[in-house]
Design a protein around this nucleic acid. Structure first.
Lengths: 123, 123
DNA sequence: ACAACTATTCAACAATTATGGAAACGATGC
DNA sequence: GCATCGTTTCCATAATTGTTGAATAGTTGT
């Protein structure tokens, strides 16, 4: 992952509205949620939520799918895991005894991902 | 972790300077780095780096220790792991078959942490 | 006490981001 | 086709954040 992409993601999670929305979607899993339900759950003005969801979508942290007149949002779990890997990679380099492998193993990933996360296995 | 603390952390990682500085410190491990060396490594104006390190410190992501006339900064690895746990907790709730346990296991944590991360084990 | 060194604080300015209401857009059902 | 519904876009305004260089503060060695 590139720095620019990572900062974009962190920026997208740096507001309470956006973080709450994303966590709601993570909790919801593959089912996702439509915009109106998110707005109700968070008690936020629709235009404001739209602004924030757009930021999350631009960072890639959520996906949108049209569903009739609704917009269904889903958390991008694979990207979340990529971010975690990015954040923790090379942790304590030079102290091999202290740092082994931080990469998260996720059954959520197993359930949701195609052949993503080809990440090098780090000996 | 509370939402407010989490957004503060994400905000602290949402600028390129701050993310690069933090990653540098993660890489450096327990040894940390003094401010001047960070500034040299990133090629950033001292006052600007100070501004960003202050943001990271305020969020708790780095610690500072005076060392003679230097200020030594270190990444707060335990907090980083807390953040990861916060981000991934309750992932796909309601789909127990899909989501088991995302919590990262870190030997870095083992090396650095006191008795931190008492996190509930999530049934 | 003084000078050199490291780092932070300050202040002014520039740039970006957040907000909510109104308008617009696309989809649906009568 | 028209009214309705869900959502986004637009707009003006308010608030926050980032950047520089100069000034300040603390530490060390002479």
């Amino acid at each position: 992952m590139e720095t620019k992409a990572a900062t974009s993601i962190f920026e997208s999670l740096s507001s309470s509205w956006r973080l709450e929305a994303f966590r709601l979607l993570v909790k919801q899993g593959p089912e996702g949620m439509v915009a109106g339900d998110i707005a109700s759950a968070l008690d936020i003005a629709p235009s404001s939520l739209s602004f924030h969801l757009k930021a999350l979508a631009h960072a890639g942290m959520v996906t949108v799918e049209q569903e009739g007149r609704f917009q269904r949002y889903r958390a991008n779990i694979p990207l979340m895991l990529d971010l975690i890997a990015y954040l923790t990679e090379e942790c304590c380099s030079g102290n091999p005894g202290k740092c082994v492998d931080l990469r998260a193993a996720s059954s959520c990933a197993d359930a949701l991902l195609p052949p993503i996360l080809p990440k090098q296995a780090k000996s």
